[in-house]
Amino acid sequence: MENELHTALIQTELVWEDPQSNRSMLEDKLKTLGSKVDLIILPEMFTTGFSMNPATCFETMDGESLKWLKQMASKLNAAICGSLIIKESGRFYNRFVFVDPDGSVTHYDKRHTFTLAGEDKAYSPGNQKVILSYMGWKICPLICYDLRFPVWSRNTEDYDLLIYVANWPDKRVLAWDTLLRARAIENLVYTIGVNRVGHDGEQIDYSGHSAVYDPLGNLLSFSEKDEILLTTLTKSAILKYRNQLRFLQDRDQFTVK
């Protein structure tokens, strides 16, 4: 079991509905990583921005972006993750993909599609919570609007790290800040939120606020600009807080259908 996990949060502008340009831009950014990184986290829909035009932007699980992610993971000897538009069995999904350095892929389909933007009409929702393992860490991957629904992230699996990738607009960024900290505190986990900056093809503005919170809700990293945030997480801190506080032992029991 590894004690430390070195993370890189890629907060960036995105080229609207242009996967090739976004892959090229992100690859240039990844070339600047100078220190040891174990896990690289990209924003939601990192190949297109938050597009409601899946028929013109989709890829498949053997498409160019998955090939690129595998190349980057192997080259950098780090896991890399983020969400993109995937078509599978005739349906479109906002899919979080997590690619290990050995090329293996784990995925999670966004459960809570954002009705305010019509995401529920363009994409099929996922129905399965995913807990993945990497370097001895148990990780729960979620996407943007999922942040508003604490039951879905409730830590009944004793996971260690909660990740949200997002295109969360500036006009509601207070909710983003508040809920990220709340998810960390209530679940006694490190919580990472990776948002984007700039504006998209729908002229929606994004102010970033990508952040890392520790299990007590203390802010470890934060940014409002186009940059890479490097943060080291320590597994022993989670165990220390859980042994001292034991709040998770008092949690309510329930089943999500």
Rank of each mutant, 00 (worst) to 15 (best):
K235P: 00
L229G: 07
L116A: 15
I80A: 01
C144F: 04
L245F: 02
Q20E: 14
I131E: 03
L188Y: 00
E27I: 04
F50A: 15
L230K: 12
A211N: 13
V15K: 12
M25I: 10
S210D: 09
N155D: 02
K171Y: 15
K235E: 05
W137A: 00
F92H: 08
S133Y: 14
N127H: 10
C140R: 05
Q11M: 10
W152I: 09
A117V: 15
L42W: 04
V173C: 14
E27V: 01
R183T: 00
L116W: 13
I85N: 07
S35R: 14
G63P: 01
P215S: 00
F114E: 09
I143D: 06
I86S: 06
R183G: 03
V212T: 08
P141R: 05
I238D: 00
L132Y: 09
A117K: 13
L142G: 03
R111N: 12
V99H: 01
L180K: 00
R196P: 10
I131F: 04
G201R: 03
A122S: 13
M52W: 12
L174N: 15
S133M: 13
D200I: 03
Q20A: 13
H107L: 11
F222K: 10
T178C: 14
D214Q: 02
L230R: 12
Y213K: 02
D200G: 05
Y93T: 07
G34C: 10
L216N: 04
I10H: 05
